[in-house]
Simulated scan of single mutants.
Amino acid sequence: MAAIQHRLQILRQRTRDLPFPRVFQDRSNPLETLSSPEMFQRYRFRPHSILLLVNILFPYLERATGRSCPLPPLLSVLVSLHFLATGAHYIVVGDVHGISASSVCRAIKTTVAILSGVARKKIQFRRDLDAVKAEFFSIAGFPNVIGLVDGTHIRINAPHQYEEDYVNRKGYHSINLQMVCDAGFRIQNVVVKWPGSVHDARIFRQSSLCLDLENGVMDGYLLGDSGYACRRYLLTPYLNTRSQAQERYNRALVKTRVIIEQTYGVLKRRFPCLSYGLRVQPQRCCQIILTCSFLHNFGLDNGDIFDRLDGFDVDQPDHDFHFQIQNPGNGLLFRDVLAQTFFS
Rank of each mutant, 00 (worst) to 15 (best):
M1T: 14
M1K: 13
Q5Y: 14
L8V: 15
R12C: 13
R12N: 14
R14F: 08
D17A: 15
P19W: 01
V23A: 08
F24W: 08
Q25M: 08
Q25W: 01
D26M: 05
R27S: 10
E32I: 08
T33D: 07
R44L: 06
H48F: 10
L53K: 06
V54W: 03
L57T: 08
L61S: 11
L61Q: 08
L61N: 10
A64V: 12
T65Y: 01
T65E: 13
R67Y: 05
S68W: 06
L75I: 06
S76P: 00
S100P: 06
V104N: 00
A107F: 06
T111Q: 10
V112T: 11
S116R: 00
G117I: 02
K122Y: 05
A131F: 07
A131C: 10
G141Q: 06
G147C: 09
V149E: 04
V149F: 02
Y162I: 05
K170R: 14
G171W: 02
S174M: 03
I175N: 00
V180K: 02
G184P: 04
I187D: 02
V190D: 00
K193S: 14
P195K: 01
G196Y: 02
A201N: 04
R205S: 15
V217F: 14
L222Q: 02
G227M: 09
Y228K: 02
C230M: 08
C230P: 06
C230Q: 06
R231E: 14
R232A: 14
T236H: 03
R242W: 10
S243R: 04
R251D: 11
K255T: 15
R257A: 12
R257L: 03
I260D: 08
G265N: 05
R269F: 08
L274W: 00
L274C: 11
L274D: 03
L274H: 00
Y276T: 13
V280H: 01
C285G: 07
T291P: 02
D301F: 07
N302L: 12
I305E: 09
R308K: 05
L309W: 12
D310H: 13
D313I: 04
D313L: 08
D318V: 07
D318E: 13
H319R: 13
H319F: 10
H319V: 10
D320M: 06
D320C: 09
H322A: 05
I325M: 09
Q326M: 12
Q326Y: 14
N330F: 06
D336P: 04
F342L: 10
F343L: 08
